[in-house]
Simulated assay, not measured.
Amino acid sequence: MNATTPEQRLQQLGLVLPAVVAPRGNFDAYVLDGNTLYISGKGSPLRNDMAVVPKVGREISADEARQHARDVGLHLIATMQAALGDLSRVRRVVKVLGMVNAVPDFMQHTEVINGCSDLLVEVFGDAGRHARSAVGVGSLPRGFAVEIEAVVSIKD
């Protein structure tokens, strides 16, 4: 990519950051502690059109869930922008934890969470590469198929 800033990369990719909304509960969307930004888990878009909570491997495919993870990645980046004012302050995405609301025999958790990881590298380059865990869970809040949290190192 020829773009030099994360904001330019987002524009080059044709991506628009979503609005950051306040959490529903007694916690913060993020905590900035020194040079570390902790971003609370963000879920995939609530599927109001579904009467059943979407289980990956049953109601939605791994490919659909991967897109959910990419969408969550955009929300994480929007939270970074809200917390820092400038995405160029991101030194490195340090750690990502991705949770997939999947049927018990689902085995593609890594491929699903790659949707978020790939986006972080597209936007931040090598600074977007991170340590990661991708796990399957029996349920997630509000009908989420995917929930992801992140830890980010910040430049002074």
Rank of each mutant, 00 (worst) to 15 (best):
residue 33 D to S: 14
residue 102 A to C: 12
residue 69 A to V: 12
residue 131 A to D: 13
residue 112 V to N: 02
residue 125 G to I: 01
residue 79 T to M: 08
residue 144 F to W: 15
residue 60 I to D: 08
residue 128 G to P: 01
residue 106 F to G: 08
residue 60 I to M: 14
residue 45 P to H: 10
residue 127 A to W: 03
residue 29 A to W: 03
residue 65 A to Q: 07
residue 11 Q to N: 12
residue 94 V to R: 13
residue 38 Y to F: 15
residue 15 L to I: 09
residue 141 P to A: 06
residue 56 V to D: 05
residue 77 I to W: 00
residue 133 S to F: 13
residue 10 L to S: 00
residue 115 G to A: 09
residue 87 L to A: 00
residue 127 A to P: 03
residue 31 V to H: 12
residue 127 A to E: 08
residue 116 C to W: 02
residue 91 R to A: 12
residue 67 Q to M: 13
residue 18 P to E: 11
residue 1 M to W: 12
residue 20 V to F: 04
residue 40 S to Y: 04
residue 138 G to N: 09
residue 99 M to Y: 03
residue 17 L to R: 00
residue 78 A to I: 00
residue 26 N to D: 15
residue 63 D to Y: 11
residue 142 R to W: 06
residue 118 D to Q: 15
residue 55 K to G: 04
residue 141 P to Y: 05
residue 49 D to W: 09
residue 55 K to T: 08
residue 25 G to M: 10
residue 11 Q to P: 00
residue 35 N to T: 07
residue 17 L to F: 00
residue 61 S to P: 08
residue 140 L to A: 08
residue 60 I to W: 03
residue 48 N to E: 08
residue 126 D to Y: 02
residue 145 A to K: 03
residue 80 M to L: 09
residue 106 F to P: 01
residue 127 A to L: 06
residue 152 V to S: 03
residue 128 G to D: 02
residue 116 C to H: 03
residue 103 V to D: 06
residue 54 P to F: 01
residue 2 N to Q: 14
residue 145 A to I: 05
residue 90 V to K: 00
residue 79 T to L: 04
residue 35 N to R: 09
residue 59 E to K: 09
residue 57 G to V: 07
residue 155 K to Q: 14
residue 62 A to K: 07
residue 129 R to H: 07
residue 98 G to E: 08
residue 39 I to L: 13
residue 50 M to L: 14
residue 148 I to A: 11
residue 96 V to H: 05
residue 20 V to T: 10
residue 108 Q to E: 12
residue 155 K to E: 15
residue 79 T to V: 14
residue 23 P to Q: 09
residue 14 G to Y: 02
residue 145 A to E: 06
residue 73 G to Y: 01
residue 77 I to R: 00
residue 57 G to H: 07
residue 108 Q to L: 11
residue 67 Q to C: 04
residue 67 Q to T: 12
residue 105 D to F: 09
residue 130 H to L: 05
residue 7 E to A: 15
residue 116 C to R: 01
residue 99 M to G: 03
residue 114 N to G: 05
residue 117 S to V: 07
residue 96 V to P: 01
residue 55 K to F: 15
residue 84 L to R: 01
residue 53 V to R: 06
residue 1 M to H: 13
residue 19 A to L: 11
residue 121 V to R: 06
residue 70 R to D: 02
residue 57 G to Y: 05
residue 53 V to F: 04
residue 44 S to K: 12
residue 149 E to D: 13
residue 42 K to E: 11
residue 145 A to W: 00
residue 152 V to L: 07
residue 75 H to A: 14
residue 91 R to S: 10
residue 130 H to R: 13
residue 151 V to Y: 01
residue 81 Q to K: 04
residue 114 N to L: 14
residue 37 L to K: 11
residue 100 V to D: 03
residue 152 V to R: 01
residue 86 D to F: 09
residue 121 V to D: 04
residue 67 Q to H: 10
residue 21 V to R: 13
residue 154 I to L: 08
residue 88 S to K: 06
residue 70 R to K: 09
residue 29 A to G: 11
residue 107 M to R: 13
residue 7 E to K: 10
residue 116 C to L: 04
residue 145 A to Q: 06
residue 58 R to N: 12
residue 84 L to W: 00
residue 76 L to R: 04
residue 23 P to C: 10
